[in-house]
Design a protein around this nucleic acid. Structure first.
Lengths: 149, 149
DNA sequence: GTAGACCTTGACGTCGGCGTCAAGGCCAGC
DNA sequence: GCTGGCCTTGACGCCGACGTCAAGGTCTAC
């Protein structure tokens, strides 16, 4: 199978396949005219790469999995090096999720605070005399928010 | 204050300040000799930028906050445009966290599965006759895992 | 023989937020 | 005047995973 067909089967572009080859991740045999040629095994390797890449693994991180498959093991994660990548990725994901959750909480709090502040200003603007006084007494001169009577 | 001093006060580099200026985010006045000069207000704007940037906001996303401060509002998030950025960021964070949690679950499951598979293979290797039979009866010919006696 | 669909290599562009030179100007202290 | 420390602009580098264009070779069908 040639590069175009493999790309189509895998739902990627030929550029991507050439990129993988340039990294030594998925080298190709060549036909007489110099065209790249692939077989079903290459499709398996490619699927392994894409599965991990879609999970957010860097291409270098997929290498142990590909080499594991190429060594004849039943699955890409049958080798210790692959498991180590899994573990590192899990730790990385946990750190990242934790960070994002902290940020999310901070931003959410800021938004709530800012919306309250705006609501307060709005209330002030709605009532030209300022916020409703807590008692019937109205101060003689220094009424807040009455700069534009 | 000159660029080096502002950078030091903010804990960033002069390159970063020049970068912000090139984006029009934090323009500087100039002294007679062409040196950039900043005041306390610029430090406020810069602090606003850095706070958001440290939260993972893109520099363009900090612009509404900076413009809000520059317009004389009490806080960078006193303006509707800033609140809109907050809300978009929250949605973005939620999506991202959700994605990462899904991936984390998937990777965790894969790791568990692969570890189990390896443990099974290990057990098979430890006992040359294959896994211990569930009863005393040993099958005559088709003993599993005994391809290498 | 020629159009068109496929393939080749090479090289530059993208996105963000700067880092890192390079070549030179300005100013203070000795 | 001269050293050293600050400043200036300009321009290329980096990271990752490709996109995109250019110039050309190969094969099939008509």
């Amino acid at each position: 199978m040639r590069i175009g067909e493999l790309a189509q089967q895998a739902g990627i572009t030929t550029r991507t396949l050439r990129h993988y080859e340039s990294l030594g991740l998925l080298p190709a045999r060549r036909t007489g005219n110099g065209y790249r040629t692939y077989d079903e095994e290459d499709l398996r390797l490619l699927r392994q790469i894409r599965t991990l890449a879609d999970f957010g693994f860097g291409l270098e991180e997929t290498r142990p999995f590909v080499e594991c498959l190429r060594a004849g093991h039943p699955a890409g994660d049958s080798c210790p090096a692959s498991l180590e990548v899994y573990r590192r990725k899990l730790a990385e994901l946990d750190d990242c999720i934790e960070d994002l959750q902290r940020v999310r909480a901070e931003v959410g709090a800021q938004l709530a605070r800012a919306e309250l502040a705006r609501a307060a200003l709005q209330a002030e603007a709605d009532i030209p005399g300022g916020p409703p006084p807590r008692c019937a007494f109205t101060p003689p001169d220094t009424a807040p928010g009455s700069s534009k009577p």
